[in-house]
Design a binder for these strands. Structure first.
Length: 351
DNA sequence: AACACGGGGGT
DNA sequence: ACCCCAGTGTT
């Protein structure tokens, strides 16, 4: 690497971090388990969103053992609204392995920690550097943005192989005496100063060592090829109330989108079939009458998919036994079960 | 290497 | 409306 400011960059960065770092709940602990929880929550998720979830989560599961033995339904409820729910299931799987195989002590080396479910190259490096003070790289989108500018790296960060370039760069730049502050310093810099659009270069502690600032155009980096294929699905959602005032809910498949989360039954509108009939057949019910044909209409955007939802409120009679993973609940019971945000939107209107 | 997998914030 | 993501697992 022909970057001439290795030492100065790292020193300024770490000094800035110690001066300006945000006071975050997971920065008040050195417990590797808690650092782990925070890092998993922070994957693809902003700090401000994570803070209340982290606090509730650690309150509920203060030790690695308490999380290892938690019921999955309860765990998903704690994660409700955070998204990427496989993170929660993988985290518990990894935590279980640590309890059973390592006597509850999170491994302190990349080889072992990387075998844990949900711990990829980034999270491994983050835990090792922050909790164990190991000089390990932790390259995420933030680090790639900052370093692409500092080193004027123009490779496409959407390509998996590009991450390797940044890992090598971090290995060269990292402060061996304080690797945790170095890695977190880049993250805070990326969050507070070296932002995706309109970077605040005039406030940047490493401006004078930034290649793009001095010779190029920071705002045009990093280079990232965007993929825009997103599809749409239209659903008729049935808010079905029985004569006891209970509502029908179903548990989604244990695989795929929103795995194991609960929802109001919904029928995919493909051609122009009879969704009401399909609903009655699928759930072994009879619609006695419609209470509100236009109860609620909205759309919900996922990263790769948009749901268009037409919700109808109906009164139903139970014909025979309900299908598995399907159950009537009172409004009070229903709130104990983990539901994705689009269903919470419906629930809020219903209440 | 491509894709699936949530959700919220910024402009 | 359209942009941005503090990644990992599966295929």
């Amino acid at each position: 690497m022909d970057y001439p400011y290795k030492k100065e960059f790292s020193q300024n960065l770490v000094e800035w971090f110690h001066r300006e770092k945000r006071d975050l709940p997971w920065r008040r602990t050195s417990d590797p388990y808690k650092i782990w929880v925070s890092e998993v929550m922070l994957q693809q998720t902003r700090v401000d969103t994570v803070i209340p979830y982290y606090n509730r989560f650690i309150d509920k599961y203060p030790t690695i053992e308490t999380l290892a033995y938690a019921p999955q339904e309860e765990l998903l409820k704690m994660w409700e609204g955070l998204g990427y729910y496989s993170r929660a299931r993988n985290l518990q799987s990894g935590v279980k392995e640590v309890v059973e195989k390592y006597d509850g002590t999170v491994p302190d080396n990349r080889h072992d920690i990387s075998k844990l479910k949900g711990v990829g190259p980034y999270t491994a490096g983050a835990i090792l550097s922050i909790a164990y003070n190991k000089p390990e790289h932790a390259v995420d989108g933030n680090v790639m943005r900052v370093l692409s500018r500092v080193l004027n790296i123009t490779d496409d960060i959407a390509l998996p192989k590009t991450r390797k370039i940044f890992e090598i760069a971090v290995e060269e730049l990292i402060d061996e005496n304080d690797p945790g502050s170095f890695n977190q310093g880049i993250m805070d810099l990326g969050a507070m100063i070296c932002t995706p659009t309109s970077p605040k270069c005039l406030l940047c502690p490493v401006r004078e060592f930034c290649t793009a600032y001095n010779e190029g155009d920071p705002a045009s980096l990093p280079v990232k090829s965007k993929k825009t294929k997103t599809k749409s699905e239209k659903y008729k959602v049935f808010i079905a109330r029985n004569s006891n005032g209970q509502f029908l809910l179903e548990k989604r498949s244990e695989e795929g989108l929103l795995a194991n989360m609960w929802q109001f039954p919904m029928i995919l509108i493909e051609k122009e079939h009879e969704p009401n009939k399909k609903f009655e057949q699928t759930y072994h019910l009879q619609i006695s009458h419609t209470i509100d044909e236009e109860f609620l209409t909205f759309k919900h955007v996922f990263s790769h998919l948009t749901w268009f939802m037409d919700c109808i409120l109906v009164e139903v009679n139970q014909e025979k036994l309900l299908p598995t993973h399907t159950q009537f609940f009172t409004l009070e019971q229903l709130e104990q079960y983990p539901m994705p945000v689009p269903m919470l939107k419906i629930l809020n209107v219903l209440k």
